[in-house]
Design a protein around this nucleic acid. Structure first.
Lengths: 145, 145
DNA sequence: TTGCATTGAATGCATGTGCATGTACTGTCC
DNA sequence: GGACAGTACATGCACATGCATTCAATGCAA
């Protein structure tokens, strides 16, 4: 009955718990703040951001779903539905990819770009508060508004 | 139209993305491995672990739900249902708290303690692999079995 | 004691997620 | 050309989660 962790394991567990705490604090705050003020979830903001970056970097109008998938930590189905939500909200458009008609090209709309630009300062602010702050104030508790 | 982040913001974003990647890799691997082999989710394992630690530290038989809540990053309702699942699986018992009959005391059963002890090495192993490994292999991709 | 605000936990409901599968398309081999 | 495996994305389904609410019990005040 091995009841105790080795020092290495204990350090690993400590690291993991801090990671969990930071993730919970930040993601929960982001979801709440971005959701309240801009109607965006954390992952939705991430997708908008990857679209902005991808288009800026490549000078392209849109990205393939399969290009977005590795950058956001979602299953393929969750990403598909997330994009559907964004499209329903008028923030992105989906179009059949010309070169491979199985694929879908996702492009920001003007409204999507604006929403992203509006939300970005708050996103950065929340990150600054939650990543800088000591862990402990997780999701269940109320954080600063 | 502030299109670019300051260096401080860029660092914050980079830190956040790495945290997201590590969290996704580890939590997804834990869910899969613990789920496949022991029928436990990541949070369920965490709750069992807090029960083991809490009982060992305080020499007590069980913990209050309200004591567990701050340690796992779940809402009160999610924790309530998680405990219900554990109880249904025979891993914990719920009993009315004597001193405050609003409260519920959650105690490990023998089966719960055994399941935890069985699962712990795998938990530590997965942490070692995912926290040590370079980020990039997130949930959607398949990790080592 | 009664009355009332507060707390601890459970539940109704809406939603986001992953797995498995379905559908459409591509590329290859014959 | 036709058959078939593989890829890209969407969808059915089950389930875990959070918010709001509900129910029970406590503490306090009159």
């Amino acid at each position: 009955m091995a009841e105790l962790d080795s020092p290495a394991e204990a350090g690993l567990v400590a690291e993991w718990r801090e990671l969990l705490a930071r993730h919970a604090a930040a993601s929960c705050a982001l979801d709440r703040e971005l959701g309240d003020r801009y109607g965006l979830g954390m992952s939705e903001f991430e997708v908008l951001e990857r679209l902005v970056e991808g288009c800026r970097a490549g000078g392209r109008l849109g990205l393939r779903v399969s290009e977005l998938a590795p950058t956001v930590h979602l299953s393929q189905s969750a990403l598909s539905r997330l994009i559907a939500r964004l499209e329903k909200g008028g923030l992105v458009t989906r179009a059949m990819c010309e070169s491979d008609r199985r694929g879908v090209t996702v492009a920001l709309t003007e409204a999507g770009r604006e929403r992203y630009e509006q939300a970005r300062p708050l996103h950065r602010e929340v990150l600054g508060l939650t990543l800088g702050a000591p862990p402990g104030s997780a999701c269940s508790g109320s954080s600063s508004g």
